[in-house]
């Protein structure tokens, strides 16, 4: 179902901290229920252009969870404040309004083999990139797709969303400082899993920093395992208007990540680099 044409104001229903990140919710009275992997372009209605004139453009933010609300759809977002835009979104107070354009972009695809005995889905998230995997995990659970979740965080201050978004399910953790789970990278956990004998028919779904995604892409390519990567690139519009979000294709030329992605099959991207 298409996004409503244009932007609309949605009310903030809550905002709380979560492991160094923030989780806030909007009430969307008009939009359809988003699919896992889709994103919205968001801008606070008030005080968006702050001192110094930024942020000016809206910011692309993945939907982390969704559910029915009294009059519409509840949209949950996981935010890491890294600059003026995400900083302002972190401060949103209940009752405030946010300009919303979306849901935009494509969604993660289901694995072809979904039987109980199949290798199923392996979700690999790092840092703020765990956001779209929360909704994906729930959807797979509802469809009886076997799911294993591997999440990596730098340290306790960068481990948001665990209690809120992944409370219900088994999660294998890695942390660079060793505060939780395996000390090291989440890709260490993935490498071990992919050498297991059932790995061939698995599909890996991943979102996180560029270096992690590149490691996931390379590991999956080496093991002949399909993967879907949710990438990031600088976005001005989110709906194909600006051509700013270019991501190189392996055969040359560029994708427009906002309309051709943000989820791209691992074999459809050249090396994942930080844009």
């Amino acid at each position: 179902m298409s996004a409503p044409f244009g932007r609309r104001l949605c009310e903030v229903s809550e905002n709380h901290s979560s492991g160094g990140y923030r989780v806030f919710s909007l009430l969307d009275r008009e939009g359809p229920t988003p699919l896992p992997g889709q994103f919205y372009m968001l801008a606070a209605e008030d005080h968006w252009e702050q001192l110094g004139g930024r942020p000016f453009l809206p910011r692309a933010i993945s939907v982390a969870e969704t559910g029915p609300a009294a009059a519409g759809v509840r949209l949950d977002f996981l935010i890491e404040g890294i600059g003026p835009g995400t900083g302002r979104l972190c401060e949103l107070a209940p009752g405030e309004s946010v300009w919303v354009n979306g849901p935009l972009g494509n969604a993660f695809r289901e694995p072809r083999e979904v039987s109980a005995g199949a290798a199923g889905a392996i979700l690999v998230g790092g840092g703020i990139g765990v956001a779209p995997l929360a909704l994906l995990r729930r959807r797979f659970g509802e469809r009886n797709v076997p799911v294993r979740v591997l999440l990596g965080f730098r340290d306790a201050e960068h481990s948001g969303g665990l209690d809120d978004l992944f409370a219900c399910c088994e999660v294998r953790l890695a942390s660079e400082d060793g505060h939780a789970g395996h000390q090291g990278y989440v890709t260490d956990l993935l490498a071990a899993m992919l050498t297991g004998d059932d790995a061939g028919s698995a599909v890996v779904y991943s979102c996180g920093p560029a270096a992690m995604l590149e490691a996931v892409r390379a590991l999956c390519a080496a093991h002949g395992v399909a993967c879907e990567l949710a990438l990031e690139s600088p976005m001005a519009c989110g709906y194909g208007a600006c051509f700013g979000c270019a991501v190189p294709k392996p055969e040359g030329g560029y994708l427009r990540l906002c309309v051709d992605g943000p989820v791209i099959a691992g074999d459809r991207v050249a090396e994942v680099t930080h844009a």
């Binding site: 004139g53 930024r54 000016f56 991501v247 844009a275």
Partner: peptide, 11 residues
């Protein structure tokens, strides 16, 4: 890329 950069009240 990179093709766009936000500036005060513009890009």
């Amino acid at each position: 890329p990179r093709r766009i950069w936000e500036t005060p009240a513009g890009m």
